[in-house]
């Protein structure tokens, strides 16, 4: 299914995974992260730091839906941010399709995120002054896709998530479920290999949440999906659930 890999897209970006076997879509190796350290690796100070993750390792294959559960403060969001490249952990490696994100510059991580990762937030995070269609097409703007292609692509995806007739509506004119579906369409618009969802049903009622989960399951057939949630119904769609407590993996069960 993957027609691009980060190595192809960014030949000199990072080191490729040279281990045997199939390349995992996402591989976390010995991730440790301390908040209060002044940022990335090698610069941590001992004073007033909070350890959010400690030696976390797991991987996700393409086609897998992996759930991430744990109480608040257990490190779920930190893992999601590390996988999306929004955060560089203090120690360990985060590989996306064989490329180590921790070795890359901000700019290259941003590029890999744009090309290979789609993010779905709990609170949708749509731009309120852009139409549903423009919100969906947003990642394509930075990719330099011509306007007509962007529109066409965004409308196709809105159709697929059942919002073909809402493409010119502003987010404020849509219900919560509709907004989350727009957000999912936006996450899919660059045809990413990895989808990261943070409490995707957290703001939705049960019925709407079920619709969104159906959509995520559908997406997950050929992509690697990482879903963080407190909600059992949401975690039930996962092939495997990684349980975190105090920044450590306490269970990684199918």
């Amino acid at each position: 299914m993957n027609h691009r890999t980060p190595q192809q897209a960014t030949a000199s970006d990072g080191r490729a995974n040279d281990g045997g076997g199939p390349t995992a879509a996402v591989r976390l190796e010995g991730i440790t992260h301390e908040y209060g350290a002044s940022g990335g690796r090698g610069r941590s100070s001992g004073d007033r730091t909070v350890t959010a993750l400690q030696d976390v390792s797991f991987d996700i294959q393409a086609g897998d839906i992996v759930g991430l559960e744990g109480p608040s403060g257990s490190g779920k969001s930190t893992i999601l941010h590390a996988v999306t490249g929004l955060l560089v952990p203090t120690a360990g490696t985060v590989e996306l399709l064989g490329t180590d994100l921790t070795e890359l510059s901000d700019r290259k991580r941003t590029r890999i995120r744009r090309r290979h990762v789609g993010i779905v937030f709990q609170r949708f995070h749509l731009l309120p002054s852009l139409s549903a269609r423009a919100n969906v097409a947003l990642p394509l703007v930075q990719a330099g896709i011509p306007r007509s292609t962007r529109r066409e692509r965004a409308e196709t995806l809105l159709e697929q998530v059942g919002l073909g007739d809402r493409s010119t509506h502003l987010p404020g004119e849509l219900s919560g479920g509709e907004r989350q579906r727009v957000a999912i369409a936006r996450a899919l618009v660059t045809d990413p290999d990895i989808i990261v969802a943070d409490e995707p049903t957290g703001e939705l009622d049960t019925a709407t949440g079920d619709d969104v989960l159906d959509l995520l399951t559908d997406i997950g057939r050929e992509r690697a999906v990482l879903v963080a949630s407190h909600d059992d119904a949401t975690l039930s769609v996962a092939d495997r659930v990684v349980t975190l407590r105090d920044g450590r993996v306490v269970s990684n069960a199918g």
């Binding site: 299914m1 027609h3 691009r4 897209a9 090309r115 990642p139 394509l140 703007v141 930075q142 990719a143 330099g144 896709i145 011509p146 306007r147 292609t149 962007r150 692509r153 196709t156 697929q160 899919l188 660059t190 045809d191 959509l215 559908d218 997406i219 057939r221 050929e222």
Partner: peptide, 24 residues
Amino acid sequence: MRDDDEFDPENDGTRRTRWSGLVG
């Protein structure tokens, strides 16, 4: 959801359309 595999954003992008898109 995967019937659009032929879509590859990186093949179509140009600097000019990116800038005009950002301004847009």
